[in-house]
Write a protein that binds this DNA or RNA. Structure first.
Length: 103
DNA sequence: CGATTGACCGCTA
DNA sequence: TTAGCGGCCAATC
């Protein structure tokens, strides 16, 4: 259920914005399950259908991607998100989408 | 069933 | 402040 839950919450992230693995982990109730989240997205049963490419690292870097970081970068750019040459997301703190850990 | 990996994170030096 | 290391959670071998 972990994977589906992660994907479900991930679907709440609007285009043009990005979230972090840690943020998703906290959203699912597993603050330290950032790796597990990344792993869940790695399996990604629904490519493209789920905005898995909008998930970046807490450092602001695009992180990795199952189909290649370059592809992920292209998708982000396609949504209006700029990526630094180093792989860092521009205005990361501004476009960062948080789930606000309600409750 | 047990151990290791993995699209990671946060702390310590 | 930057670099290095262990720790965690879940899934896979």
């Amino acid at each position: 259920m972990f994977r589906e839950l992660v994907l479900k919450i991930l679907s709440a992230v609007p285009a043009g914005r990005v979230t972090t693995y840690a943020a998703l982990a906290r959203a699912v109730g597993r603050p330290g399950a950032a790796r597990a989240v990344g792993n869940a997205l790695h399996q990604n049963p629904l490519p493209i259908v789920v905005p898995c490419h909008r998930v970046v690292r807490s450092d602001g870097f695009i992180g990795g991607y199952r189909f290649g970081t370059r592809r992920k970068k292209a998708l982000l750019v396609g949504e209006g998100i700029r990526i630094e040459s180093s792989g860092q997301v521009e205005n990361f703190s501004q476009i960062l989408f948080t789930f606000e850990s309600k409750n």
